[in-house]
């Protein structure tokens, strides 16, 4: 698969932070392609640049240098407003701390990005209902986030991320604030979404969950030091061999 077909194409992406007179190289030349429908996890120790990379992928931040093409469009030098528009349409976020808005109901939280997109209310309703149903939270639409468990809140966050049918889902330690049962459930949900065709890029430092992906990208000191196939890919390949054999 060539890079020109990739949903995400990063070439020589660098990110430098300046604090007083100290220069910190968070990313030191990242080359990364993510294909449509791929499930990639980014792993590495604390401070290796995982979250910085995810922020750049999600257009929350811009690279200091390098090239970033998202869905065939160069996005490294866009205005704030353009970045917001593309973020709204192309990217779905799942945060470690859920980041649901406490004053809004579950339904309204999921609806929020669609509202920013200017979608009409009938279409919004359809999308929100589908998204909530797909994560099994349809029955909690009128609840406030504070009335939900952590696992349920993260499922709502997933629904919010997928409601707009983005090109890619970016998940930043999505199980970090959950117990193992709820963590497993959320990972299962992501896997289901991936099976349904979603492209996912997940940052995690938990090796077990990283294995859920097709591909695991290991970061160290701002560089990709290793890429390996995840258990998901191996399962698929094993299944393929079994079928062929």
């Amino acid at each position: 698969m060539s890079s020109s077909d990739a949903l995400i194409h990063l070439a020589e992406v660098k990110k430098v932070f300046y604090t007083d007179e100290v220069e910190t190289h968070a990313l030191s030349g990242i080359h990364l392609d993510i294909q449509k429908g791929e499930y990639v996890s980014i792993a590495g120790p604390s401070g290796c640049g995982k979250s910085t990379l995810l922020s750049i992928l999600g257009l929350l931040d811009t690279p200091s240098e390098g090239e970033y093409v998202l869905n065939e469009m160069p996005v490294e030098n866009l205005s704030l407003s353009e970045r917001a528009r593309i973020r709204n349409r192309e990217v779905g976020f799942i945060f470690q701390s859920f980041n649901l808005i406490g004053d809004l109901t579950v339904y309204e939280n999921v609806e929020l990005p669609l509202t920013y997109r200017g979608m009409n209310s009938a279409e919004r309703k359809k999308r929100v209902t589908e998204a909530l149903e797909s994560v099994g939270m349809g029955h909690r639409a009128k609840h406030l986030p504070s009335q939900l468990s952590g696992g349920q809140q993260q499922r709502v966050a997933v629904a919010r991320a997928i409601g707009g049918q983005p090109s890619i889902l970016l998940a930043d330690e999505p199980t970090g604030n959950l117990d193992s049962t709820n963590g497993e459930a959320v990972m299962e949900l992501l896997r289901d979404l991936h099976r349904g065709g979603a492209t996912i890029c997940m940052v995690t430092h938990d090796a077990r969950y990283a294995q859920h992906a097709d591909r695991i990208v290991h970061l160290f000191d701002g560089l990709i030091v290793e890429e390996e196939a995840g258990a998901n890919r191996r399962d698929v390949e094993d299944n393929g061999r079994g079928a062929n054999g």
């Binding site: 999600g58 929350l60 704030l80 407003s81 917001a84 528009r85 973020r87 709204n88 349409r89 976020f93 945060f95 980041n99 649901l100 808005i101 406490g102 929020l112 990005p113 920013y116 997109r117 919010r160």
Partner: peptide, 13 residues
């Protein structure tokens, strides 16, 4: 944080 979420979700200024 909420405003950050909104911006992350694509809210314009």
């Amino acid at each position: 944080q909420e405003l950050g979420v909104r911006l992350a979700l694509g809210a314009q200024q």
